[in-house]
């Protein structure tokens, strides 16, 4: 299994409350904050044109909606498996950003989980965590 290290965050989708009200159900049309899903920077070519992980030196294989990734929090070893439901994060806007837990470090925004998925492996109040993602 090939794994890529990067930073994980969370995002809301599905027309929930607050600033999420106008978000909609994501690029795949299926995204909901309460479901075990994630946004992936290489969810399509149009998505890659926005997120541009290549500008931060990350080469990602294009995956389509519904593809599963397993994400492991490097701070506590907890893991969750989710499916692609949206495009994101915008990796290029934060090139080189780095998060660490002890010697476990990761750079660049790689994956955004829904609140439901993120809260399985980290607290929502942390906002940003180093992770390892199995990319197949």
């Amino acid at each position: 299994m090939v794994a890529v290290r990067g930073e994980m965050s969370w995002f809301c989708c599905g027309n929930a409350w607050g600033p999420c009200g106008s978000t909609g159900h994501g690029a795949c049309g299926t995204c909901n904050s309460g479901s075990r899903q994630h946004a992936w920077p290489a969810a399509s070519q149009a998505c890659l044109d926005i997120t541009r992980p290549d500008l931060c030196g990350i080469g990602l294989t294009r995956r389509s909606c519904g593809f599963r990734h397993r994400t492991t929090n490097l701070c506590n070893g907890a893991a969750v498996t989710t499916s692609i439901a949206d495009c994101g994060p915008r990796t290029r806007s934060f090139c080189g950003e780095r998060s660490c837990c002890g010697a476990n470090c990761a750079s660049n925004r790689l994956i955004d989980l829904t609140p439901s998925a993120y809260s399985v492996i980290a607290s929502l109040s942390t906002g940003l965590r180093p992770v390892s993602v199995d990319v197949g």
Binding site: C75, N76, G77, A78, C100, C101, G102
Partner: peptide, 14 residues
């Protein structure tokens, strides 16, 4: 805390 050994011992149980 999250960079400590103590946290790593029980982090997954929290």
């Amino acid at each position: 805390l999250q960079r400590s050994d103590a946290y790593r011992k029980v982090g997954q149980l929290l």
